[in-house]
């Protein structure tokens, strides 16, 4: 499904699957509040909180944004501003 849509969206980023939220949990970004994620044995029981992290080349977090509610998250301009502020 993701593969099929790649051409449509002209994505160049690497898309990683985190169906069991193992990576999300490693980062501590699983949403603990009410969520509308899929429920079922083979589906994830919860969702990540929408989050964006900027890492330097050593893998240290330079900047991050965690959405405080799912109806609001930062647009690309905020991420671009962070890139300019931290990498220039």
């Amino acid at each position: 499904m993701i593969r099929a849509k790649r051409g449509v969206h002209r994505l160049k980023a690497t898309m990683l699957s985190d169906r069991d939220l193992a990576v999300t949990d490693a980062f501590g970004l699983r949403n603990q509040a009410i969520h509308s994620g899929p429920i079922g044995e083979d589906a994830a029981e919860a969702l990540p909180v929408p989050a964006t992290l900027l890492l330097d080349k050593k893998g240290t977090v330079l900047w991050m944004d965690v959405a405080e509610n799912y109806q609001r998250r930062q647009g690309p301009e905020v991420v671009l501003a962070a890139l300019r502020a931290h990498l220039d």
Partner: peptide, 17 residues
């Protein structure tokens, strides 16, 4: 119900992934 709540110790600025 739109508020999100992360775990007690999420990754923060300065941490290594």
């Amino acid at each position: 119900i739109s508020r999100q709540q992360v775990a007690d110790n999420p990754i923060t600025v300065g941490d290594t992934v």
